[in-house]
Structures are given as structure tokens and as C-alpha cells.
């Protein structure tokens, strides 16, 4: 019967001891322990959050860098393209100018050649005319030395004229 009838003395002690134990432990053990655990968890969470933030910031920075790099690259490309265009233009301009100059020179040369040619031709004509007159003089002198021959010539010339 002892087994299942609570003994008052033991009940009394258990209640008192347990009540005191709860209060003592709550004040001197559980409060600092739970507080310490809480603080640690909070600081770990904070650390994790700040690490996450730093990571994000890092990512942002990286993205910024990339953007900057991209811009720089684009600028470089643009500059290079401009330069290339300029070069091509310069080359093209220079070519054109040279061509024009060359054309001009050629033209001038041609003109002078033409002129020379004309002068030469004129000279030649003069020479030929002089020569022809001289030859004609000589021939006429010879022909006209004889009377018969003079008549013959006049006739022939008249024939020619009438034929025309």
C-alpha cells in the first residue's frame, strides 16, 4: 500500500525543493543561459545578414564594374571606328587629290603636247609651202623656157579648168 499512497513528508519536501529550484534556476541559470544563447543567435543572424549584405554589395560593385568596363569598351570601339573612318577618309581624300593633280598634270601635258604638235604642224606647213613654191618656181622656169611647152601647159591648164 506504501507504493501507491503518496507520503506527505516526501510530497512536502518535493514541492518546497522543486519550487525553490525553479526560482533559483530561473534567476541564476536559465536566464543567463537563455539570454546568452539568444544573444549569440542574434549576433550570428546579424553576422549572416551583414555577410549577405556585403555579398550583395560586392555583387552590385561587380555589376557596376562590369557596366563601366562595358562602357569603356564601347567607347574604345567607337574611338577606334572613328579613327578607322578618319584614316580611310584621309586616304580616300589623298587619293582623290593625287588623282586630280595627276589628271591636271596629264591634261596640262596633253595640252602642251597638242600645242607643240600644232606649232610643229604649222612649221611643217610653212616649210612645205616654201619648198613647194621653190620647186614650182624651178619647174615653171624650166617649162617656160620653151615656147611650145608654154602653150602646152596653158592648154592643159585650161582643159583642167573646163573639165572642172
Amino acid at each position: 500500500m506504501d507504493l501507491i499512497t503518496p507520503d506527505f513528508g516526501l510530497f512536502f519536501w518535493q514541492t518546497i525543493v522543486f519550487l525553490v529550484l525553479i526560482f533559483v534556476m530561473a534567476k541564476f541559470a536559465w536566464k543567463p543561459i537563455l539570454g546568452g544563447i539568444n544573444n549569440r543567435e542574434k549576433s550570428i543572424n546579424d553576422a549572416l545578414a551583414s555577410a549577405e549584405e556585403a555579398r550583395k554589395e560586392m555583387q552590385n560593385l561587380k555589376a557596376d564594374n562590369e557596366e563601366l568596363l562595358k562602357e569603356a569598351r564601347a567607347e574604345k570601339d567607337a574611338i577606334l571606328k572613328d579613327a578607322r573612318e578618319l584614316k580611310e577618309k584621309i586616304i580616300a581624300d589623298a587619293g582623290e587629290e593625287a588623282q586630280a593633280k595627276a589628271d591636271k598634270i596629264v591634261k596640262q601635258a596633253n595640252e602642251s603636247i597638242e600645242r607643240e604638235k600644232k606649232a610643229a604642224m604649222a612649221e611643217l606647213k610653212n616649210q612645205v609651202a616654201t619648198l613647194s613654191i621653190e620647186i614650182a618656181e624651178k619647174v615653171v622656169r624650166k617649162e617656160l623656157s620653151e615656147e611650145k611647152k608654154q602653150h602646152q601647159l596653158i592648154d592643159k591648164m585650161l582643159d583642167d579648168v573646163t573639165l572642172n
Binding site: A29, W30, K31, G36, N39
Partner: peptide
């Protein structure tokens, strides 16, 4: 039984006051 109960109480105080003093000192 009461004596054994006291022993448990002493053990608990010994264990957990130690842990509590650690938590008071270090993070």
C-alpha cells in the same frame, strides 16, 4: 528520497551555474 533529491539539486546547480557563468563571461 529527499536526500537523493537534494543531490540532484546540487548537481543541477553545479552543472548549470557553470554554464550560466560561462554565458555571462563569453559570447
Amino acid at each position: 528520497n529527499v536526500a537523493a533529491m537534494f543531490l540532484t539539486v546540487i548537481l543541477m546547480i553545479w552543472f548549470f551555474f557553470g554554464l550560466a557563468s560561462f554565458h555571462k563571461k563569453k559570447a
